[in-house]
Computed example of a mutant assay.
Amino acid sequence: MKIYPTDQLYEEMAFIAYHFHWTNAELMSLEHAERRRWCREISAINRQLNGESANPFEIG
């Protein structure tokens, strides 16, 4: 069984909690893949709101 790095876990949890105001219990109940997916979705929303390209190498 692979152990998930604690620092990365806290970074993901802080990122989601900051944007969605979810509780620690709600965040801890998420599977790793689901938590990572929420991080990607929040990042996509932030890029869209900032007028940034989804692909940082894409010239707009």
Rank of each mutant, 00 (worst) to 15 (best):
E12P: 01
S29Q: 11
F57N: 11
R47W: 01
F57Q: 03
R36H: 04
Y4L: 14
C39K: 09
I3Y: 09
F15A: 03
Q48R: 06
A44Y: 14
E31W: 10
D7H: 08
E31G: 15
W22H: 02
I59D: 09
W22N: 01
F20L: 08
P56T: 01
E31I: 04
F20S: 07
Q8W: 04
S43C: 08
Y4S: 05
H32P: 03
R40A: 11
S43R: 05
Y18W: 11
R35A: 12
K2G: 05
M28K: 10
Q8H: 06
Q48W: 00
H32M: 06
Q48D: 00
S53Y: 01
C39L: 06
L49N: 14
H21Y: 08
R36E: 10
Q48Y: 10
R37Q: 11
I16A: 05
P5W: 02
R47Q: 13
T6C: 07
I59V: 13
E26N: 06
T23S: 13
C39Y: 07
H32Q: 14
I59E: 09
N55D: 13
L27D: 00
A33D: 11
E11N: 13
A33I: 01
F57Y: 12
G51K: 01
Q8P: 05
L27A: 01
N55I: 09
E31A: 15
E58L: 12
A44S: 13
F57W: 14
L9Q: 08
H32T: 11
R35L: 15
M28E: 11
N55P: 06
I45E: 06
